[in-house]
Nucleic acid binder design. Structure first.
Lengths: 361, 361
DNA sequence: CTGTTAGCGCGTTCAC
DNA sequence: GTGAACGCGCTAACAG
């Protein structure tokens, strides 16, 4: 392993001079600088980041913890965070927690061991326990997407509550009253907020909430699929489904198709979070699209203020408004606004006023 | 910053004993162990990975460089690699090179500086230059997906050449002779191989290659879109398009739609690489699906053999067969096999034998 | 402008 | 079974 000493010998200067050259600080004569550069080149020297970090007490990296690296919402968020981090000379380490608080805890330990200078977390749960170490060690932390109970930190998130109201309302305006909510893990703030918004929209419309139409579990596709499947087999009357995120919608779609139901003709379907690539190929799902990339850049921005500008003020909250993107799955573009009554007991209620103008808010 | 010395003082033992406890080697009495554990707990001590790495000359991490973190092919590959790495006590650092050799070079330097124990690279180019440092420093390296000229290393990749033959052939069997290839960056091995396969399939079928139907550029969606757009405006007769990967296909789709052409009625479309989520929502694109997750796990497997089992044998090559997945975009399920002649000069050649059985190979 | 010195936090001998 | 001492590779302070 070639070290700074090897370089200094080869260049005929002291290690300190080499250090000054590579870290670009302090005065070094042009001649010495050249000699050092040449020696570095010849030896293929690359400074040891661990030694440097040990000395400087700075690792030069920040971390991002996401619950599901397969979900494009989080990869897009990650790109935003990475772009800002890199632009500020920091490297981003991404950890995938698989929606598991235990894995999250392990990653937090790894990050603390690595002495990352800050962490952005889209938490797997809403308990602060896996994040305890971050508080103890006073690691600058920013939450994104999901609130964590009793964890007092900056946060950047979409407006799940109002977004859910708008989205549910969209279905109501299309004439639906029997709307199922396929939620994710009840221990995540997004799930709680979206359910609250859903209930509020129904309340305002004077529609009674039928608890059989509410289900939660995990944020995995397979789980949503199983729950929708059960719902259908139990003959709970449903003319529309609200997936709490894109994965829930995909699970619902699978189950609906397996049961021979068409979307949107038989059942309307909407969800939170866009699926960009899929929408390119076929603009099908009506969604509340969240600005994932911006959530990443803004989150990293807040973090950097705490790290580099040593901002120590109170936690800040940035809430971004999601955008309703109306496509086919909600049935807004069907001739008949109200789905055919494939499901038992559809009340044949008249469609009420529909509002096809509201395609973008 | 709480250190091993703080712990040793609190526990009333020497730092060496604490070290033995946390790294779990050497003899420590049960009593001492308990005392140390308690002290660690009370102080919230987490060993400094940089200090440890500096001493042990092991960072405990491996790196993966991908050209496009937004592309699900690479995130799926990354998950495979991560799962295997974690199962072997190593942490995976993912770097996104954005298809840029310069960025790749920067990441390689970072990885060498971090003293990662091995690297998996899906290279942005086919030049070994950005990877030079890895050779110099003898960092165990495994290539995935893309070959690099003159870079002698283990590699795991899909069979682009034969895959392209099968895919092109599929179009030919459906009656197409005017097939455009929208390729990616010509300096990537996948692009070269897929073009070679495309040419070979046409040659075997006795179809002359019209160079106007061949285009390459970058692997970005926007670029493919612009090129297809140009192709259409230039009235080059085309009844089918072969996208060299999923992004190329999406770009082509955008351009086709903008020009009022329907897929597959007016133009058939196929590509390499599946887009899982999109296929869930709408099984539309006919693709040669590559086993991305397996490429990740196998690649990491080869790497670990070199790292932990010190395997020093000659480079190994693992070539995985992609799977033809026939969906709607190729027109195989249309009543009329041959697309309507929307484009000038379609030769109204008879469809020849089609082979709808060949849906999965 | 440059070299000498000390130490970041840990693991590892080698005595005891 | 345990502790003292050294050094991994680098940077920061202080002389010169």
């Amino acid at each position: 392993m070639v070290t700074i000493d090897d370089v200094s010998r080869k260049a005929g200067v002291s290690p300190a001079t080499v250090s000054r050259v590579i870290s670009n600080r302090g005065y070094v004569s042009a001649k010495a600088r050249i000699k050092v550069f040449n020696a570095i080149e010849e030896l293929g020297f690359v400074p040891n980041a661990m030694a440097r970090g040990l000395k400087t007490q700075r690792s030069g990296s920040v971390a991002l913890l996401v619950p599901e690296i397969i979900n494009s919402f989080y990869t897009t968020l990650a790109r935003g965070a990475e772009d800002v981090a890199n632009a500020n000379g920091l490297h981003l380490i991404i950890g995938n927690t698989d929606e598991k608080p235990e894995k999250e805890k392990v990653y937090v330990e790894l990050m603390v061991a690595s002495r990352v200078e800050g962490v952005i977390v889209a938490s797997a749960g809403r308990s602060a326990k896996p994040l305890r170490l971050l508080v103890e060690r006073e690691v600058p932390t920013v939450l994104v997407d999901r609130v964590v109970d009793g964890f007092n930190a900056d946060i950047v998130r979409g407006d799940s509550y109002n977004g859910a109201i708008v989205l549910t309302n969209h279905l109501i305006e299309l004439g639906h009253t029997e709307i199922a909510l396929i939620n994710g893990h009840p221990e995540t703030s997004a799930a709680v907020d979206r359910e609250a918004g859903y209930r509020e929209a129904l309340r305002r419309a004077g529609i009674k909430v039928d608890e059989r139409r509410l289900s939660s579990g995990t944020w995995f596709i397979e789980d949503a699929e199983a729950r929708v499947d059960r719902l259908l087999r139990q003959k709970v009357p449903v003319t529309a489904i609200f997936g709490a995120n894109n994965f829930m919608a995909i699970g619902a779609l699978r189950a609906l198709r397996r049961n021979g139901l068409r979307v949107p003709e038989d059942v309307a379907l909407v969800s939170f979070d866009d699926v960009e690539v899929a929408a390119e190929i076929d603009p099908f799902l009506t969604v509340m699209a969240q600005p994932a990339y911006s959530i990443g850049t803004l989150g990293m921005g807040l973090l950097l203020e705490r790290i580099t500008r040593k901002y120590l003020g109170p936690p800040r909250e940035v809430v971004l408004t999601p955008r309703l993107t109306v496509r086919r799955s909600c049935g807004a573009f069907l001739k008949t606004q109200l789905p055919e009554e494939k499901v038992a007991s559809a009340k044949a209620q008249s469609a009420g006023e529909s509002n096809p103008r509201k395609s973008e808010q």
